[in-house]
Amino acid sequence: MKYIPTALWAMLETLQMAFIGTVIGVVVGLPLSMLSARNLNSKYVYAPTRALLAIIRTFPSILWALLFVIMVGLGPYAGVLAIVMYTIGFVTKLQYESIETIDSDPMDAVSSIGVSKFQLIRYVVLPESASHLLGQILYMFDYNVRQTSILGIVGAGGIGFFIINYIKFFEYGKAAIFLVIVLITVLIIDWVSVKIRDKYIIKSQHGVEVKRKKSLFS
């Protein structure tokens, strides 16, 4: 039981790494996904951007972690950088694909006014795809928490560092406690993201109307 505070601290570090990594990854990734969307750019813009993203995506996060451990040394800093790179590669693909599926009618109508591309993105593309983008960011954070738990294996900080060491020294009981902590955290994050989805995503997809209609009959 005395390992639980250590486990909680390690988990907190993992969460911090995943959070910072996701935030930076999304902030860098969003402009890149706008550049990769075929309905917003010419092929001279989207093709090279997509190629760059494909290269980033080729490396699994554990390889990025190894690379950054070599570059910046052991610890959470390398882990955050690995998560940032992985998030950029992965979330941009999800996002440019959902940007490409948005309705072309509002885009045509608004671009016929002669607005700038930035205005088109700010006032049409982002509002139209916001619910998808938010859903993907939540998914990415969820995924990154699980990823970060493993990155410790190569010395990139977080709870994984403890788990792999306990396993190495045959202390499976302690390793199990740490794994349970990871499990509970993932479940909590899942629950929170369901709540956020209900509040912001379902609502923006006509959820309010559905609820109102239901209450008429109840």
Partner: peptide, 11 residues
């Protein structure tokens, strides 16, 4: 310009 589909931003 008002297209047939109106082109409003839904959200």
């Amino acid at each position: 310009y008002i297209p047939q589909s109106l082109g409003l931003v839904k959200n």
